[in-house]
Design a binder for these strands. Structure first.
Length: 305
DNA sequence: CGTCGGGTGCGTCAGACGGT
DNA sequence: ACCGTCTGACGCACCCGACG
C-alpha cells in the first residue's frame, strides 16, 4: 500500500524519505526532527483535520466545558466545504493538490474560446454549457464545470441523407448523458434528444460513448415537443404561461442542482483521497519518529552490564 | 440459477452559507 | 431579504460477489 524508500538519512542533513502512496503519487517526507515544528501534534496541518472531525470530538469538548453550547452549536452546524478544507490542506502540505477555485463565467470562458477558430456566435445552454459556432460551421461545446479534458467538446456536423425539413443533425461524443438537454440559439434552436434516456429509462451514467442527437431547427411556427423557449417575465400573461415558466425554472434549478451534486461528489472523493494520502504520510512520519526516538534512547542511555 | 447484502452512483430535497 | 451554491440525507437502481 505505502512503500517507503529512504534517501539521505544521514545525521546533520535533512532526512528525506520518499513515500509511495496508494494512488501512485510519490511524496517526499523530511525527517521530522530536522523540521522546525516542535511537535507533530501541534502541527498546523492538524487544524484542518479538526474541522472535519469536530462532530466526533463533541463529547470531549462537552466534558471539558471549554466551548459553550451556543458556540459549539454554531461550529457543529457549519458544514465543511471540501474545496476549502482541501485547499487549506494544500496550503499546509505542498504535495497535496488543490481543488481549483470555481472561476466566474467571464473568467473561465476565454481560455476555452481562445482555442477556437474565431467563433461568430457564443451561446450558453440551459445546462451552463457554452456553444460556439465558428465561421466555418464548426460547433464547439465548452462545459464550464468540468475538467479541462472534458471542457471542450467538438461537434461534427453531418448531413444525413434525408434530414427533416429545416433540421441539421449535430452529433458529439458526450462524457455523460443526463437526460434531455435543451439549449437555445437565437435564430435557431437546438434540441438534444438523449436516445439512451428514451430507450432505457435507466438513470445510470453508463451512457458513455452514446451519441445524443442535436437537431438545429429554424424558429418554425410550432416548437418541437419538449422545447421551451425562454421567456421574459414581462411577456407572461396567461396562467398557463406562468405555469410553464415555473416548470421551466424548476427544470433549470434541478438541472443545476444535478450538476452541483455531481461536482460535490467529485470533490468529496478528491477530499477523501487527500485525507488518505495524509494518513499515509503521517503514518510514515510517526514511524520515523518512533525509530528516531529509539535511536536517541540508545545513544543517551547505553546499556551497562 | 435465484437471492441476498454490500458497494457505488445518481437525482432530489432541505437547509446552511455567502454574496449582493 | 433574496438568490445561487454547496452539501448532508434519503431513496432508488444497478453491479458484483457470496451463498444455498
Amino acid at each position: 500500500m505505502v512503500s517507503v524508500a529512504g534517501a539521505g538519512t544521514g545525521r546533520g542533513s535533512p532526512a528525506v524519505t520518499l513515500v509511495q502512496l496508494p494512488s501512485g503519487q510519490t511524496v517526499r517526507v523530511q525527517g521530522v526532527i530536522q523540521t522546525p515544528q516542535p511537535s507533530v501534534i501541534q502541527s498546523p496541518q492538524i487544524q484542518t483535520v479538526q474541522v472535519a472531525t469536530i462532530a466526533e470530538t463533541d463529547e470531549s469538548a462537552e466534558s471539558e466545558g471549554v466551548i459553550d453550547s451556543h458556540k459549539r452549536r454554531e461550529i457543529l452546524s457549519r458544514r465543511p466545504s471540501y474545496r476549502k478544507i482541501l485547499n487549506e490542506l494544500s496550503s499546509d502540505v505542498p504535495g497535496v493538490p488543490k481543488i481549483e477555485e470555481e472561476k466566474s463565467e467571464e473568467e473561465r470562458t476565454p481560455p476555452n474560446i481562445a482555442t477556437m477558430a474565431v467563433p461568430t456566435s457564443i451561446y450558453q445552454t440551459s445546462t451552463g454549457q457554452y456553444i460556439a459556432i465558428a465561421q466555418g460551421g464548426a460547433i464547439q461545446i465548452s462545459n464550464p464545470g468540468s475538467d479541462g479534458v472534458q471542457g471542450l467538446q467538438a461537434l461534427t456536423m453531418t448531413d444525413s441523407g434525408a434530414p427533416p425539413p429545416g433540421a441539421t443533425i449535430v452529433q458529439y461524443a458526450a462524457q455523460s448523458a443526463d437526460g434531455t438537454q435543451q439549449f437555445f440559439v437565437p435564430g435557431s434552436q437546438v434540441l438534444v434528444q438523449d436516445e439512451e434516456t428514451e430507450l432505457a429509462p435507466s438513470h445510470m451514467a453508463a451512457a458513455t460513448g452514446d451519441m445524443p442527437t442535436y437537431q438545429i431547427r429554424a424558429p418554425a411556427t410550432a416548437l418541437p415537443q419538449g422545447v421551451v423557449m425562454a421567456a421574459s417575465p414581462g411577456s407572461l400573461h396567461s396562467p398557463q404561461q406562468l405555469a410553464e415558466e415555473a416548470t421551466r425554472k424548476r427544470e433549470l434549478r434541478l438541472m443545476k442542482n444535478r450538476e452541483a451534486a455531481k461536482e460535490c461528489r467529485r470533490r468529496k472523493k478528491e477530499y477523501v483521497k487527500c485525507l488518505e494520502s495524509r494518513v499515509a504520510v503521517l503514518e510514515v512520519q510517526n514511524k520515523k519518529l518512533i525509530e528516531e526516538l529509539e535511536t536517541l534512547k540508545d545513544i543517551c542511555s547505553p546499556k551497562t552490564d
